[in-house]
Design a protein around this nucleic acid. Structure first.
Length: 390
DNA sequence: TCTGGGGTCCTAGGACCC
DNA sequence: TCTGGGGTCCTAGGACCC
């Protein structure tokens, strides 16, 4: 019988801030933006802030109305990543098989560790204690025979709790679960549940696979059918590699000027290409994303016959895509771009006979990358003027 | 309430080939 | 010629997650 722990850090970003700044402890901390950041949203609200009704994804403006006395912070991802690594290191003391699924959560396969570490409840106790002692943070745990139900269980034990689904109890657990707790069913699905009168997992359980797929589509219908039976949902089980890489920016004010938009695009290109170079991946598929003032969003992509080789090339291609897609005169609130269908492979490409500038460009870009790695914060970038004469 | 940034996966339709 | 079926690749949009 398999056994998994899903471990999820409580109000992670806010907790790190409270750890680093004792004066924040016991107070409502809201990470995501400062009052007055008109287009920011809450990333994490401390439990003190949640009492005011503040929650993730809420506009900062709204949070300020609900919790005017809160401590508002933009956040420091570098620091959070550092802290995350500390926690993951603790996890690896408890299982040889740790799978991190986001910055603040992971699955630990503890199948067969009983002899070494004791029964699951004991392991949970020790794990929480070690996380607390070594990192100063608290975690909520869910324990079950498969990852999917362990994940739901941890959500129900927040904050700082542990919930265990006894082996064989997965189906009963899912059937008694309110549909609002089904992981993978978001806003739209919840609306559908309402129209069909589904309130608990059992209401879905009563439906045939055929009727579920007829209503929810092939993949999602099958997902629901299996989920309410407590069967491991495929989502977590197969290895999913990184398939795309992107960056985007929302402007404080809508942008109309195409030169300014291109300049932002250039900045995004540099971010992406440096990351790509750093990871030693390559890609032939580029895409842009445009969000207009009214929040309507459109995207366009293009697959080249060779991997993107330089910032310059990416920038030129993206500008081209942008100009073909952009509806002139409409204000733009967000511009984004990225690379899809990432492949591993040497970024040096063969047969570049007619493109002698490219090799020079790439080596220059690599040097800039190295400098930026050595001196974080130096933010060395190509100026826009370099583009004309690389 | 007027909605971030970084991802994954699914769907549906078109092009193209055998 | 008014017309099948399957496979693969590509594109746009959308749901969902943290």
């Amino acid at each position: 019988m398999s056994c998994f722990i899903h471990a999820d850090l409580d109000a992670f970003y806010a907790s790190v801030e409270q750890l680093d700044h004792p004066e924040y402890r016991g107070k409502p901390v809201i990470v995501g933006g400062l009052p007055g950041d008109r287009r920011s949203v809450v990333s994490t609200a401390s439990y003190e802030a949640r009492k005011f009704g503040v929650h993730s994804a809420m506009p900062i403006v709204r949070a300020c109305e609900l919790c005017p006395g809160g401590i508002y912070l933009r956040g420091d991802m570098q620091r959070y990543r550092e802290k995350s690594a500390e926690v993951m290191a603790v996890f690896s003391n408890f299982s040889p098989e740790v799978k991190q699924i986001s910055i603040d959560e992971a699955f630990l396969d503890i199948t067969g560790t009983e002899k070494l570490l004791g029964p699951p409840a004991e392991i949970a106790k020790k794990l929480k204690a070690e996380v607390r002692d070594k990192t100063g943070l608290t975690a909520s745990l869910g324990i079950a025979a498969n990852k999917y139900t362990a994940k739901i269980a941890s959500g129900m034990s927040k904050p700082d709790g542990t919930s265990i689904i006894p082996p064989g109890g997965e189906e009963a657990f899912m059937r008694s679960l309110p549909v609002s707790k089904i992981w993978g069913a978001g806003k739209k699905a919840q609306e559908q549940f309402k129209t069909y009168g589904f309130e608990t997992g059992d209401d879905i359980y009563q439906e045939s696979l055929e009727s579920l797929t007829a209503v929810f589509g092939k993949a999602f219908g099958l997902f629901l059918y299996r989920a309410v039976r407590g069967e491991a949902a495929a989502a977590f089980d197969d290895e999913r590699g990184t398939h795309s890489m992107s960056a985007e920016r929302t402007f404080p004010q809508d942008l109309y000027d195409e030169f300014n938009i291109e300049t932002e695009l250039l900045d995004i290109c540099q971010t992406i290409m440096f990351r790509l170079l750093d990871c030693r991946w390559q890609s032939r598929t580029i895409f842009i994303k445009i969000r207009y003032h009214d929040f309507s969003t459109t995207s366009a992509q293009e697959t080249l016959d060779h991997p993107v080789g330089s910032i310059n090339e990416l920038f030129e291609r993206l500008c081209d895509l942008f100009h073909r897609k952009y509806q002139r005169g409409r204000g733009i609130r967000l511009i984004g771009a990225g690379l899809a269908n990432l492949e591993t492979g040497s970024p040096a490409r063969q047969g570049d006979l007619f493109d002698t500038g490219s090799e020079k460009e790439r080596s220059l870009e690599r040097q800039i990358l190295e400098i930026n790695k050595k001196f974080p914060g130096a933010a060395l970038k190509k100026g826009r003027s370099w583009l004309a004469d690389p």
